[in-house]
């Protein structure tokens, strides 16, 4: 009896120790101990943070969003019937043009409702990604830098490379104009404006201005975005039911 009791005490102590050590680990890792649990969500979140990484792998100290990881996730979202909508969170400094365009086209061609929120910054290639969704929001403090496409590194064949870059820029402009309410003239004006950025051409557009130009649909944050996506989901459900009746 005594031995059993001792054993039990030992076990209890061990459990306590392992419990406290996992607690310590959590505190070390996160600075907090418990996380709230919630039921399954029908809305999934795709965050585009840091640089959009394309064909060249950046050193690990860079915070990057790798498009090869996001593309399969978008396919998974499209296939999963439980997922009814996607929210895109953007805080990016830009990055690879073709990777960004790939992401934008994927998001634009999703059948499910999509809403984006630009937080902090949605610069350069972040602009087409932000406008690729069905509806876009920007928080009042966020900015979007619009500037011409550029290249760093060794260039072999300058005129050809220039033509190639010019075409690439045209693709970006076309995408943004086709997926937002901004006029091509206005977007080009912003892109080639002088005197706004020191030592560079382009414009740093503030949240409210982006809405005025028609680039982004509305100023708002999480609350507005959630309301909008739920509205879209209800619409999609409503139209689905109507088809069944007919």
């Amino acid at each position: 009896m005594n031995k059993d009791a001792e054993k039990k005490e030992d076990q209890g102590e061990q459990e306590e120790q392992s419990g406290s050590s996992s607690l310590v680990q959590k505190i070390q890792a996160l600075g907090q101990t418990n996380i709230p649990q919630a039921p399954d969500s029908n809305i999934h979140v795709l965050s585009i943070i840091g640089q959009v990484e394309g064909h060249i792998q950046l050193p690990p100290q860079n915070k990057t969003t790798k498009y090869e990881h996001l593309l399969p996730q978008l396919i998974a979202i499209e296939q999963n019937p439980k997922i009814e909508g996607v929210i895109l969170l953007l805080n990016t400094v830009g990055g690879d043009v073709e990777a960004g365009l790939a992401l934008s086209e994927m998001i634009a061609s999703l059948s499910k409702p999509t809403v984006s929120i630009v937080l902090g910054g949605g610069h350069s290639i972040g602009v087409p990604i932000a406008v690729s969704t069905d509806y876009s929001f920007i928080v009042p403090t966020a900015t979007m830098t619009i500037h011409p496409v550029r290249l760093t590194g060794l260039v072999i064949g300058v005129p050809q490379t220039f033509e190639y870059l010019d075409k690439m820029q045209e693709r970006v402009i076309n995408f943004v104009v086709n997926h937002s309410n901004i006029k091509e003239e206005k977007f080009k004006d912003l892109m080639f404006a002088k005197g706004n950025l020191t030592r560079d051409i382009g414009t740093n557009v503030l949240g409210t201005d982006a809405v005025d130009y028609g680039l982004i649909d509305e100023v708002g944050g999480v609350k507005e975005a959630m309301a909008k996506i739920n509205e879209f989901i209800d619409q999609a459900k409503g139209s689905g039911e109507q088809e069944v009746i007919q």
Partner: peptide, 13 residues
């Protein structure tokens, strides 16, 4: 893309 995964203890950074 599932927001609930980020609340799972197992996947905390």
């Amino acid at each position: 893309t599932d927001p609930q995964d980020y609340l799972n203890d197992m996947y905390t950074p």
